[in-house]
Computed example of a mutant assay.
Amino acid sequence: MADVVGGLVHAVLMADRKHGRPAPTTETTITAVNWDSRDLTGEEHERVLFVDADLTEATGVGAVFTDCTFRGVRFNASTHTDGAFVNCTFVRCGFFDATFTGCKFVGSMFDDCTYDLLKVAGGDWSFTGLPGADLRRASFTDVRMRETDLTGARCAGATIRGVDLSGSWLHKADFSGCDLRGSDISALDPLTTELRRAVIDPYQAVVLATSLGLDVRD
Rank of each mutant, 00 (worst) to 15 (best):
A32I: 03
V51H: 00
D142W: 05
C88W: 03
H80I: 08
V51C: 00
L135R: 07
E147K: 08
R74P: 01
D124W: 09
F140Q: 04
D142G: 01
R71N: 12
R17Y: 01
S126W: 05
A98Q: 08
E43T: 14
R136V: 05
F96E: 03
H19K: 13
F65Q: 02
F110Y: 04
S139N: 10
D67S: 13
F70D: 04
S126N: 07
T25V: 15
F127R: 10
E43D: 01
A138Q: 04
A63W: 07
S108K: 08
T69W: 02
G123F: 03
A138K: 11
W35C: 04
R21A: 14
G42M: 10
F70G: 05
R47Q: 06
V61F: 12
L55Y: 12
G83A: 10
T99V: 14
L55V: 05
F85I: 06
S139H: 08
T69P: 05
L117H: 07
L118R: 02
G94L: 10
A15F: 00
A133L: 13
G102C: 06
L135W: 10
R17F: 06
S78G: 15
F127G: 00
G94H: 07
G20E: 07
A53G: 15
T66A: 04
D142Q: 09
V120R: 01
Y115S: 00
I30K: 03
R144S: 10
G129D: 09
P131D: 10
F140T: 03
A84L: 09
T81S: 08
D116F: 11
D67W: 04
A121P: 00
D134F: 08
V86W: 02
A77R: 15
E57A: 12
R38M: 13
S108D: 08
T81E: 07
L40G: 10
S78A: 15
T79W: 11
V51T: 03
R38I: 08
G72V: 05
G107N: 02
R71F: 12
V33N: 04
S126A: 09
D82F: 08
R21L: 14
R92H: 02
D39I: 10
F110M: 04
T26P: 09
T141I: 05
A63Y: 01
A121S: 14
G94Y: 03
F110S: 03
E147A: 12
T69D: 05
S78T: 13
R47V: 01
N87K: 11
R92A: 07
R137V: 06
G122I: 03
D67M: 07
L117I: 00
F127W: 05
G20S: 12
G72Y: 04
D67V: 08
F75L: 08
R71T: 10
H19F: 14
L135Q: 05
G102F: 02
H45N: 05
E57S: 15
D82N: 12
G123H: 02
R136Q: 15
R71C: 11
L55E: 01
L55F: 15
G122W: 11
L118W: 03
V51I: 11
A15D: 04
F140V: 06
C103M: 02
R146Y: 00
A98R: 12
F95R: 06
H19W: 13
D124Y: 11
H80T: 09
